[in-house]
Design a protein around this nucleic acid. Structure first.
Lengths: 247, 247
DNA sequence: TGGCTTGTGTGCGCCGGCGCACAGACGGTC
DNA sequence: GACCGTCTGTGCGCCGGCGCACACAAGCCA
């Protein structure tokens, strides 16, 4: 973790004009996020919004039967806690950390104050919410129509966009739980990808070797969400540099 | 259609305080909506927001393969056009009318003006957006884990909430396209429901005979969305009366 | 009435994903 | 180095949903 800890690695925070950023900066707390850490549970009143920089968070729904499904992932392009400014306070979903890293959190009160003030923050948060809605739309359709292998490729690509090194620390078991499918299904699909030279893995570690292999196998859903997110949210300034910060 | 045409049959419009409602009322146009009518297509800039009173609208995603899936339905509790005030203007989905009836539309400019003004409208629209997000979450999870029969029951219950008479004009073919499943799958599931005395249908007409039968077969998703929507949005005043307007 | 369109019922074979069971392999720990 | 928990590979049988094909019925129109 040699990454310089900087709120501006989050696309939303980085897009704020100086005065708004300064106003918030005093209240942003850097928080190390651990794998599996629970941010909120269904119906729980959130006390903070979380803006990931290097961490990856995930919004889940756990069914009565215990089966679960990730419905949206959140990386440095977004935040967790839309219900704070949407007015509902709570959600029937939960959020956990799926890749350890850093995030900044902002107290509920400060977020609301900034949201209610005319300025960039509100517009950014709403645009992000629309990107989130797009992701949910696409996940719903993808769950209905696409194969486990396609969904695995999509998940890998999304994760790759957030972890430029392509070195993931994750078990097949966990990926399966995120996608809401069987662990063996992931073993098989990942085996095919490995034999094709697209990825390589060993016990809890997965490396993407050939991104283009994923791109040729993935369903359209990846591109739709990515394009829409890029359309809605400003890019990180010098994003290639920040991607290299870690080297 | 003996229903009195009144914007206040829409839960969002009905919840506005008098001055805000009056300000908007001048710009609300009553629009008859026909079955199958297309409100917008992917990427198309919406010129109006639509607030259904008796019509039912549906947000869809159509995949490259032609397969489609309804991701959210919109009745008199909501509106179509969140992208207008979320700031993205367009969406990668489309919306069509699935049950003929009435809606009120509001020009883009008036909606934005009202949204930018401090008042109830913004808060209501945001709370509705959160309800929509809940619906998308649940649809994604439901598509992953639940059977066609359960999803059919869910769809019928949601529709029933919006068409209190329980007399639907719809073909199995159309239901199948909405749920993104095979027509034969609906025929089989509907056949089981009919044999159990829960519904009754003939060529393009479907009547719910015993609501409790649907409730005992449906998955949890129906209740989650309904509870959350009721929590987030104010009820229609005298809603039982308005439900009886049609008799 | 007859003929046409459109919706519905049913019977295949097929395949993807599930649930279960168990063997092997890896990588920590003592 | 031996041990053990965890992760991964593989082989079943099963079932739900798909795709296709075709028969039949209902309603519409001439």
């Amino acid at each position: 973790m040699t990454t310089v800890d900087n709120p501006k690695q989050n696309r939303l925070l980085a897009a704020l004009p100086v005065p708004e950023f300064e106003r918030l900066a005093a209240h942003l707390e850097p928080i190390p996020m651990l794998l599996g850490e629970l941010l909120y549970q269904p119906g729980e009143q959130l006390q903070h919004a979380y803006f990931p920089t290097s961490a990856i968070l995930s919004m889940h729904y756990v069914m009565a039967s215990g089966a679960s499904a990730e419905t949206a992932g959140v990386g440095n392009e977004g935040m967790v806690g839309v219900s704070l400014f949407m007015g509902g306070d709570t959600m029937p979903s939960s959020a956990i950390c799926t890749t350890a890293g850093h995030a900044y959190r902002l107290g509920r009160r400060f977020l609301m104050e900034e949201f209610d003030r005319p300025g960039q923050m509100r517009s950014l948060l709403l645009r992000y919410t629309q990107a989130l809605i797009t992701q949910l739309f696409q996940t719903a359709a993808c769950n209905r129509h696409h194969s486990v292998e396609q969904q695995l490729c999509r998940w890998l690509l999304v994760t790759l966009d957030r972890v430029p090194s392509g070195q993931l620390v994750i078990t097949q078991e966990l990926i399966a739980r995120m996608l809401g499918v069987r662990r063996e299904g992931i073993t098989e699909a990942a085996g095919r990808l490995q034999r094709a030279g697209v990825i390589q893995y060993r016990r809890g570690h997965l490396a993407v070797v050939e991104r283009s292999g994923l791109e040729s196998r993935v369903c359209e859903c990846y591109a739709v969400v990515r394009t829409e997110t890029d359309r809605l949210l400003p890019a990180l300034p010098h994003c290639q540099d920040s991607a290299r910060d870690r080297l």
